[in-house]
Design a protein around this nucleic acid. Structure first.
Lengths: 228, 228
DNA sequence: TTATTAAGATACTTTATAAAGATAAAATAT
DNA sequence: ATATTTTATCTTTATAAAGTATCTTAATAA
């Protein structure tokens, strides 16, 4: 057993955003220090001596990106000795979700150091961050099948087709609208409002839906969980 | 961002063992150093500067317990600043499974420093290890519903009732034998041998079953996954 | 302006699959 | 022998998936 240890601890986050136009996207920052200077990377940084891991990643996201996270969960810890070419750094990773209003694509100039990238068009990334993103994606995929995390990626009120498109984008496979609707409405946590969706193109406009958090918690307490 | 960091990195493991007689059990060691001297705790220790996290936990398990792990997977990372009363230590935890032959209850004397404890009769534990065990248990529970990890806790050949009892013990809820058998046999990775189980008491003796790893991998490649 | 068509939403129907019910078979115990 | 215990199979019922048709609205054409 080693008496002294020379390992640093970092936190990094895979932040997902979504709009039906842009698809599922990930928030990246351009590194301005070595190693991997000028490469795109996940937001993150070293953990402070007196802050929790959650506090650390929230602080880094605030400092580096300013986005407003609506959902955050620990993903996995990556600790291969060679993952950082300079020092031994273990990264404890998180994945987060933001609402469309926080998901402003190409906010400033193209030379900006913070940007969103479609999940299918990622640039070359620093360290093992490509691996981390694919692990996060798989996690989000499986999570969405039995927990209502998807709503954290949508506006408060949304047409049903938006929810369907989101599931399509994340799961990367076709969704059966009829049965999908039956499954997800039978529990009652998805409320139908009387408001109609703003029209874009032809077709009958549908009502807007809203996720009722309280009803979902109630179901959880009763041990009822949904499935897609 | 801190320029220097004073955080240590440890790995700890929740190792599960099972027999129908003893039930689902966890491997613990008695600490012989402060803090929590003489308390029971999870096996684990500090990560070496040049070893991976997996190598670290395998080394610690070998050194501290000598058990032969058949399955090991990362669980979660615990990093509350106060979880160790002396230093800041972040623990990256794993959970593992062993076969019944490695699961020798009360191996040496009662004063031994390594022992198995039934999951429902755990002693007071050091640090946040009680929390870690409950997280591990929930993980094992949900994992067993869609991955064949349970077989790592059984002998190579086992009567179907053993598998049923294992699921009962881990899931902590009744199992419908008829449908359970249909579900788990329809994929073909559970092979029925012609050998009959050794009889203990009344009842019709059943054939022994065996998990066919290759067939399972084949199914995985085809994208077929099972469900309980 | 009015009919027609296209896009999307919704309801109803059939088919497939899973859950629950019931019975039979093989062994031990009395 | 007869009851009891456990395994195995067959049948019925419930639920979910897939198929089909209808309704509502906007865009387009007459």
């Amino acid at each position: 057993m080693p008496v002294t240890q020379n390992i640093k601890v970092a936190v990094d986050a895979v932040v997902f955003g979504y709009t039906s136009k842009e698809g599922l996207s990930v928030l990246l920052i351009k590194r301005n220090i070595e190693p991997f200077k000028n490469s795109w990377a996940l937001p993150g940084g070293l953990v402070g001596d007196h802050e929790s891991l959650e506090e650390a990643i929230q602080r880094e996201l605030r400092e580096e990106t300013g986005v407003n996270i609506t959902y955050l969960e620990q993903l996995y810890s990556f600790g291969q000795p060679e993952r950082d070419p300079r020092n031994r750094v273990i990264s404890i990773t998180y994945y987060g979700l933001v609402r469309p209003d926080a998901f402003v694509v190409k906010a400033a100039t193209d030379a900006s150091d913070v940007n969103w990238f479609n999940i299918k068009k990622l640039p070359a990334l620093a360290f093992d961050h490509t691996t981390i993103i694919s692990v996060a994606r798989e996690r989000l995929k499986s999570k969405m099948l039995y927990q209502p995390v998807g709503f954290e990626l949508l506006e408060e009120k949304f047409p049903f087709s938006e929810l369907e498109k989101l599931y399509l984008a994340v799961l990367d496979r076709p969704i059966d609208r009829r049965n999908f609707k039956k499954k997800i409405t039978k529990y009652g946590f998805l409320e139908e409002t009387t408001e109609k969706q703003a029209l874009e193109g032809a077709g009958r406009p549908g009502n807007l839906f809203r996720f009722n958090e309280e009803k979902y918690y109630q179901l959880q307490k009763e041990g009822i969980s949904f499935e897609i």
